[in-house]
């Protein structure tokens, strides 16, 4: 037990994390590219959907993007919680660094959702429950980013962001439920949803591979951001001087 605590404290020290993430990032990105290649190959060799035709191939990017948008929000809230409770600087930075990545995936999910909607519904935008919740999620991300940028002090801003992320994560199920409720009241139920009740295994497999690829991508890009932010915020600390001093000679 004691050893686990020791390992944990070592890992969350900025210096050690900077070194460790530097070693890990190429692996994450490398494995991501390999898995992505499998996913892309599977996505375009899967049989054509008898209802939606070829347009269903958008789902192979839309569903992973939507999934990532929620996963990253939860990660942000968990990191924020850890940062608030245990005052771990690395957790605070993780929460802050997650926000733009999550916002990018949310925007991607919205864009691909409406590109899927145009041939299916005839318009780019329908106030469908999923698209609407995704839009509100984007607003929540924008709020987090705006709040971080409005506060000058890094630590203070990160702690404010953590609280906002926690408030958001409590609210997301409520928002989701209310939007579902609202859309079933206002729209005919015949509207086809993005998720199929049961997907053919040949279609499901590439989708799962794409989701796995994105899940591997996230720590890679996240660590890259964290490293840059650590360097900037810790530039007065001894380890940065030691690190760059060594590299500089």
């Amino acid at each position: 037990m004691n050893r686990i605590v020791q390992f944990f404290h070592k890992t969350v020290s900025p210096e050690y994390f900077y070194w460790l993430s530097g070693k890990l990032i190429p692996w994450f990105i490398g494995i991501f590219v390999v898995v992505l290649a499998f996913g892309v190959w599977g996505a375009f060799t899967a049989p054509t959907d008898y209802q939606q035709g070829e347009s269903y191939r958008i789902i192979f990017v839309h569903v992973p993007a939507a999934y990532m948008s929620m996963l990253i929000y939860v990660c942000m809230a968990v990191a924020g919680f850890i940062g608030l409770v245990w005052h771990i600087k690395l957790a605070e930075i993780t929460a802050v660094a997650s926000a733009p990545i999550g916002a990018a995936f949310t925007a991607l999910a919205l864009a691909t959702g409406s590109l899927w909607g145009k041939p299916m519904w005839g318009t780019y935008w329908v106030w469908d429950a999923r698209l609407t919740s995704e839009l509100i999620l984007l607003f929540l991300y924008i709020g987090v980013i705006a709040l971080y940028n409005a506060i000058d002090d890094h630590r203070k801003a990160a702690r404010a962001v953590a609280i906002l992320a926690l408030v958001g994560v409590v609210n997301i199920p409520i928002i989701h439920f209310s939007v579902e409720w609202w859309s079933t009241l206002h729209q005919p139920a015949t509207l086809s949803k993005l998720d199929q009740p049961s997907m053919h295994p040949d279609m499901l497999r590439p989708l799962l591979i794409m989701i796995v690829a994105c899940t591997i991508y996230f720590p890679g890009i996240l660590f890259m951001r964290i490293r840059a932010m650590l360097l900037r915020q810790e530039r007065r600390s001894r380890w940065v001087a030691r690190l760059l001093g060594e590299e500089g000679t």
Binding site: T48, E54, L115
Partner: peptide, 12 residues
């Protein structure tokens, strides 16, 4: 893409 080329390729 069976007529859906624009949508599929812009999404990807």
């Amino acid at each position: 893409m069976g007529g859906y080329g624009f949508y599929v390729w812009s999404s990807w």
